[in-house]
Design a protein around this nucleic acid. Sequence first.
DNA 1: TGAACGATTTAGATTATATCTAATGTGATA
DNA 2: TATCACATTAGATATAATCTAAATCGTTCA
Lengths: 141, 141
Amino acid sequence: MDAEAIKRSLEGSGLRCTPQRYAVMAFLMEHTRHPTAAEIFEAVNRVDPRSSRATTYNNLRDLVQAGLVREVAVEGRAARFDAKGMRHHHFICDRCGNVEDMEWYDVPRPPSRALGKRILRECELIFRGHCTKCAPRHASR
Amino acid sequence: MDAEAIKRSLEGSGLRCTPQRYAVMAFLMEHTRHPTAAEIFEAVNRVDPRSSRATTYNNLRDLVQAGLVREVAVEGRAARFDAKGMRHHHFICDRCGNVEDMEWYDVPRPPSRALGKRILRECELIFRGHCTKCAPRHASR
DNA sequence: TGAACGATTTAGATTATATCTAATGTGATA
DNA sequence: TATCACATTAGATATAATCTAAATCGTTCA
Ligand SMILES: [Mn+2]
Ligand SMILES: [Mn+2]
Ligand SMILES: [Zn+2]
Ligand SMILES: [Zn+2]
């Protein structure tokens, strides 16, 4: 995706396209690795423009609120982030905590009887187990 | 569930039934509210036996490893815990972060082609949106 | 019984992650 | 150019979780 498209998607969500915010968004779109805030902060600061830690967190919060980025909480580890491109599920490794994309398929919604007065925004399917890298060590643990 | 049953389930997992560990497990089984470690620590210390913060965390870690307790990571908040009784899904409120149980239903597994060399342990379905308490304020936000 | 030893607990220090504060900068608009 | 809301910043602060090293507990077995 080119710079103009990123700019448009930010502005379409009511967010100014600042250099720091653009850099966060562009980095997330180039990397499907689900980086942490600290990794994004570092990566953005290896090139211009520079961005403070507070700004990195602020922008991630804004992008999540705008629905352009997803935050993935992993037990016992820093949150990871993900530009919402194509729909997909996630596989989270029990051992190393890495988050990997899995091809999307439809998930059955709960019956409305079970929802009650709750308002459902999304159904998220998370797979857990051992990733390709960790599966061999699985037996030994 | 009575005390003997808790004792047996701990010992069946190779964990000694210490007073502190028992108290954590018993509290989780009595409360379906998905308390945080801090809440469990407080609750356990309102009655005997007392337990230190480190012990509370240690025991939660041990119980999760033994598969008796589930840890639920919620973005931007402390982890929550859940005695694994009957299978169920979770609804997590976008606004207040509360975790609520939802009746269980079968989730389609990914095709093994998509899994590759990964070892799948479980498929977790998480519903997100606004809980009953927060739904009314949803419009205003 | 009691010595030995691994498992467990403990208070407090430390680390890791994330947010807040208050001052400063920036850009769109009038 | 003046204004004003939005955005950025360094550093302080808050929150969540883990680590450390010493003390205690419980089981085993001589
Ligand atoms: Mn992803
Ligand atoms: Mn539950
Ligand atoms: Zn792994
Ligand atoms: Zn709520």
